[in-house]
């Protein structure tokens, strides 16, 4: 069995625009192994989010393959891919995307709708405590601070112990301290053996990554791919 968690090969994706096709991703290849924390940087519209959605099995590329834990995502039927995504891929978004009418506990348990867990509640409570939200268990998102919301979203992403975590601008709506805390949690996840693909245009966020990939006009810039030593940041709960 391959150690590669995420394998992108020659991914291309175009969108239909008013004046024809618009290239979003053009021939990007990427590989993430356990403990990889890869930051994809670039300006708005460079194709970062498209790459992330394609990596998560949510957006089929026009060409190329996406494999997670050795499985070609887009070779699977839709329902099977959805179940596979629930088990193997965690998502964190800039807008948190917590369900507004569910409290913290139910939001963290939301992935069990897709993939029931026998010990889901115990696991969710453990994650909530771990992310410092024990006192917010039955609070709805509107009652939480932005940092708390993102930590709740992070707990939700980790409920099924996925090997791959996809984060789309997770610090975009956070202040520096909360942003650092979230990045520290992502780094901790990677250290524990997970793989993180972080999409951001924030140069500071990239400092926590083990690798940074720069994208421009849908292409990765090979010269800019660099190894960066991860910053040592202790996760803290703001």
């Amino acid at each position: 069995m391959s150690d590669t968690v995420l394998q992108l090969r020659d991914i291309e994706k175009h969108y239909a625009g008013p004046s024809g096709k618009v290239g979003a991703v053009a021939g990007v290849s990427l590989s993430l192994s356990p403990r990889d924390f890869v930051a994809v940087q670039g300006p708005s519209g460079c194709g970062k989010s498209t790459l992330l959605l394609a990596s998560g099995g949510l957006l089929a590329p026009d060409s190329g393959t996406v494999s997670v834990a050795g499985k070609d995502l887009y070779a699977m039927p839709t329902d099977e891919r959805a179940r596979f995504r629930a088990a193997r891929i965690g998502f964190v978004f800039q807008q948190f995307h917590l369900i507004p009418y569910l409290d913290v506990l139910d939001n963290v348990l939301a992935p069990t709708m897709a993939l029931p867990m026998a010990d889901g509640r115990r696991k969710a409570l453990g994650l909530i405590e771990r992310f410092g939200l024990g006192h917010r268990l039955h609070h709805v998102p509107a009652a939480l601070s932005t940092g708390e919301r993102q930590r709740a979203a992070l707990a939700r992403a980790l409920l099924h112990d996925p090997p791959l975590l996809l984060a789309d601008e997770p610090t975009g709506n956070l202040d520096e301290a909360n942003g650092d805390a979230v990045l520290a949690h992502l780094a901790e996840f990677a250290k524990a053996g997970g793989a993180v693909l972080l999409v951001t245009h924030d140069p500071k966020a990239a400092r926590h990554a083990t690798r940074t990939i720069l994208m421009m006009d849908g292409r990765s810039l090979p010269d800019e791919v660099r190894q960066t030593p991860p910053r040592e940041i202790r996760p803290s709960h703001m």
């Binding site: 839709t78 329902d79 959805a82 596979f84 629930a86 998502f91 939301a110 897709a114």
Partner: peptide, 10 residues
């Protein structure tokens, strides 16, 4: 959208 991302089927 987020439920689908979490693996909830159509």
């Amino acid at each position: 959208g987020v439920l689908r991302a979490l693996g909830v089927r159509s």
